[in-house]
Design a protein around this nucleic acid. Sequence first.
DNA 1: CGATCTACTTTCATGCAGAAAGGATTTCAC
DNA 2: GTGAAATCCTTTCTGCATGAAAGTAGATCG
Lengths: 142, 142
Amino acid sequence: MSQHLIDDVDYRILQQLIQDSTLSHKEIGQQVHMTGQAVGARIRRMRELEIIEGYTVRWNPGKIGQNVHAFVTVFLASNAAHPVFLAFAKEDRRVEEIHKVSGEGCYWMRVRATSQEELSTFLDELLGYGNYKISLVLSQIK
Amino acid sequence: MSQHLIDDVDYRILQQLIQDSTLSHKEIGQQVHMTGQAVGARIRRMRELEIIEGYTVRWNPGKIGQNVHAFVTVFLASNAAHPVFLAFAKEDRRVEEIHKVSGEGCYWMRVRATSQEELSTFLDELLGYGNYKISLVLSQIK
DNA sequence: CGATCTACTTTCATGCAGAAAGGATTTCAC
DNA sequence: GTGAAATCCTTTCTGCATGAAAGTAGATCG
């Protein structure tokens, strides 16, 4: 809302890029009735405003053996445990994403591993910092 | 594991692309000691194997007013509720991601909204399908 | 040993991205 | 109303990336 950082055309360009960032500016331009250069300028502007943070690939961890996918809610007892836990989580390769949350627990994490054992040893390490509750992902729907 | 779909070089290329998919094949090639064309061939292969599913952008929903970010665990009472709930969730713009999980609840969702009110009305709609538990994201750490 | 396969490099053509310059439209002060 | 400035677009042009094709080196196997 508020000062309208982006207009409708920007939004449509952004949606196209989210779907497929390899589309040429020209192709996007056909959708929004502009030349590729005009689209390029708008994209550049969104990059400068950090609405667009970067370009990346969607990929399938399961295809390279990362078959275990879990959501872990972390409960930390003492205040002192937070920084050391965060250092661990930021560093650990198996933690793909972590957020501080209000509601249940202190932190929420997405964890990926190649096997139940790897997950299990991860959870053992995690116990060094606090308690947790885990949900295993059965299938992604969206 | 198993039949080693990708080797170490593929993995390094993939990591580079995850970090920044605008890197030219040539630049990636310098990292892995190959020509850009060889890198291109490996990337093409990973696309065909659907290890790489597509190209997209990382973006910041907060910058365009999507400031509310929450994780919702959904509990469905009857079996009959599942398909109708899933149809709702797949369709709804505010549901960014949804997974079937084992552990607590039936489904886990990532929800984004522009305001507490919008989240609130979303949750009211959700009550039509089952119960839920919600965690509000305070800050993303990783 | 020779055939085949795989994965790389070299060479080449198409076309995209970004810079620069020019034009149309809006906004604002006076 | 008029001129200045800002904004946003189009047109033009250059460099470079991508992808195809052909050639080469090394591994595998009968």
